[in-house]
């Protein structure tokens, strides 16, 4: 297992270097002088310009600049936001819990609905339920989620007035952000109604963000189940007289889950891409909205830092998924 772990980490190193080169190049690839870009419309005097060029090290050879950048990363230095003047890494970790909370709710929703629905569709192959589920899943998979979010706002926040339009919690509640997770913090605060407010703010964004992963997981579960159900050992289990429930839940499910877990792991990237749109629509104060705003505000150090952080986190999550995969399926662990 340790060797497996080490080999996987070894594979990550070149990718991480590549990712850091992309993030490093980003500011230097932008058209125009990087210092002038950061100064914005206020303009700069000649001396200040030269001073800043030196301060940021733009006058030194490119590989030296990259080396400094890399050293900075390992010391947790991702530069400073031009707009707020705060360290990018501090801003990132202040907003990150909001994105994690939303993504976790979405993936839990997608797994809790997607897997059972996929299993039932596979067991009742060709039935009305199967057709409905597969059609719905294809619609979900094809959904432009930014539009889907707007539709849900029109219906549930506009016409029915069941949920709020945007934000994480109603502004009347104020309590310390102990964990950064609104659901936990609102419970800890003990204020009446705070938790309910947090939940009602989370419902629509979670549904929107869960839509595509849900469709993918349901489809993948169904096809994995169908494949396993036609295997000999399932027939043997049936022939032994085991109850259909036992055959499905014990014999078939365990093996069908292997590709499904890979699929769930792959959804992390999908969730981050979806978070950009979902957070923008619902004014959810997370990483996705922060990045879109930073791009339009030309706060490029933020974009650069967030780009690196997001890619690194996705890589680490994929590593964990790989590990889980190795735990469930020993043949992968011993493959090499």
């Amino acid at each position: 297992m340790l060797r497996f772990l080490l080999s996987r980490i070894g594979l990550l190193i070149p990718t991480f270097i590549g990712v850091s080169i992309v993030a490093f190049s980003f500011i230097r690839l932008l058209p125009g002088d990087p210092v002038l870009l950061m100064a914005g419309e206020r303009g700069l005097s000649e001396e200040r310009h030269a001073e800043l060029l030196k301060q940021f090290g733009f006058d030194r050879p490119i590989w030296e600049q990259y080396w400094d950048y890399l050293l900075g990363i390992f010391q947790g230095d991702l530069g400073f936001s031009i707009v707020t003047k705060k360290p990018v890494i501090a801003e990132f970790f202040a907003l990150f819990p909001a994105t994690v909370e939303l993504s976790l709710c979405a993936i839990v929703l997608a797994v809790l609905i997607g897997i059972p629905v996929g299993i039932i569709a596979a067991v009742k192959r060709g039935s009305f339920f199967d057709h409905t589920v597969m059609t719905t899943a294809l619609v979900g998979y094809s959904m432009p989620i930014f539009w889907w979010g707007l539709l849900l706002i029109i219906l549930f926040a506009g016409i029915l007035q069941w949920t709020p339009v945007s934000g994480r919690i109603s502004l009347i509640y104020f309590f310390p952000q102990v964990t950064g997770f609104m659901l936990i913090d609102s419970l800890l605060s003990g204020q009446a109604g705070a938790f309910r407010s947090a939940v009602s703010h989370l419902i629509l964004p979670s549904i929107v963000l869960a839509t595509i992963p849900l469709a993918v997981i349901a489809r993948q579960t169904r096809s994995a189940m169908l494949e396993v159900l036609s295997e000999d050992y399932v027939r043997t289990a049936r022939a032994k007289g085991l109850s259909p429930f036992r055959v499905i839940s014990v014999h078939a499910l365990r093996n069908a889950m292997i590709p499904v877990i890979t699929t769930i792991g792959l959804q992390i990237g999908v969730l981050m891409a979806g978070a950009i749109l979902t957070e923008t629509i619902f004014s959810w104060p997370g990483i996705g909205k922060w990045m879109v705003e930073s791009i339009s505000r030309r706060d490029y150090p933020v974009v650069q830092g967030a780009l690196l952080m997001v890619a690194t986190i996705i890589m680490l999550v994929n590593l964990v998924v790989d590990m889980l995969y190795g735990l469930i399926n020993p043949s992968i662990r011993y493959a090499r």
Partner: peptide
């Protein structure tokens, strides 16, 4: 691998910013 390490829409956004 490096291209795939980024969420697709994020990379597209950054490229368009460039």
């Amino acid at each position: 691998d490096v291209i795939l390490a980024f969420p697709s829409l994020l990379l597209a956004l950054v490229l368009v910013a460039i």
